[in-house]
């Protein structure tokens, strides 16, 4: 019988530490599968963020660098400039990438840095216990917005894909989600394209992945999936925001 479900070679056989129903694990698996399919496990260098995904370096079976909070795109720049023929990616949460690391990811895109950012948007700071993230929705309750995010006080969610699209250095920008089998297939396609764009030397690529954090949203895994679909997707529309000209990859 053909095995329909097996661990990608790029993922080590260790249990994830993520909470039940957390979709960080799904995103890891997709990245692992893409790296396997592209046959680049031996040539890839990944960057772990500060956030719940800080331990990705223990899960992926290839060279990994742990970066300071938000700085992964700068670290990846250093690596890629020294080793231009390797595949270099970062895996970052919304606090990491879109708050403290805003300068780093924007300027990596501005420079057209040939790296790929996998950006996990779960609308909250997971690791530190559920504080407001730059992507927290208006009205969304978090530990630091106990009455719901009030735009008068805390402004509005950051739309990373929309922001990056006009930049000339950004070659592939897409937003996906991992709340349903169909969405997961789309997400994987986007991740693969992002890596291919990098490998073709076309410029900066980023895939935003809407992800769940049942623990800090105070929901069951099922409720979380539903909440993502009903609240996040309308605010953060899915799709490819920027693609290279047809036929290039």
């Amino acid at each position: 019988m053909k095995k329909a479900f097996s661990r990608p070679q790029s993922l080590l056989d260790v249990p994830f530490h993520y909470c039940p129903g957390c979709t960080h694990g799904v995103a890891h698996r997709l990245v692992g599968e893409v790296i396997d399919e592209l046959g680049i496990q031996d040539n890839v260098i990944g960057h772990a963020p500060v956030g719940c995904a800080v331990f990705t370096m223990d899960y992926f079976d290839f060279d990994m660098i742990s970066a300071a909070h938000g700085r992964a795109p700068a670290v990846a720049t250093g690596v890629k400039r020294v080793l231009p023929d390797r595949v270099v990616f970062t895996y970052q949460g919304d606090g990491d990438l879109a708050a403290i690391g805003t300068g780093e990811f924007v300027h990596a895109a501005v420079r057209g840095e040939k790296i790929t950012c996998i950006f996990i948007n779960n609308a909250v700071y997971g690791m530190t216990g559920g504080q407001m993230a730059p992507t927290t929705l208006p009205g969304q309750k978090t530990k630091t917005t106990p009455f719901g995010r009030d735009s008068v006080i805390s402004g509005y969610p950051i739309k990373v894909c929309e922001m990056l699209t006009p930049l000339d250095g950004a070659a592939y920008i897409a937003r996906a989600a991992v709340h349903s089998p169909r969405a997961i297939i789309q997400a994987k396609k986007a991740i693969k394209k992002a890596f291919q764009v990098q490998m073709a030397g076309l410029g900066f690529s980023l895939v935003e992945i809407l992800s769940t954090c049942p623990t800090n949203w105070g929901l069951t895994p099922l409720e979380a999936v539903k909440w993502l679909e009903e609240n996040m997707i309308p605010y953060f529309p899915l799709g490819e925001y920027k693609v290279p000209a047809a036929g290039v990859i």
Partner: peptide, 16 residues
């Protein structure tokens, strides 16, 4: 874009 980025680029290049 900043000294924060500079030192982290150094970190990456040194790691490489």
């Amino acid at each position: 874009e900043s000294e924060v980025a500079s030192i982290n680029m150094v970190y990456g290049a040194a790691a490489a």
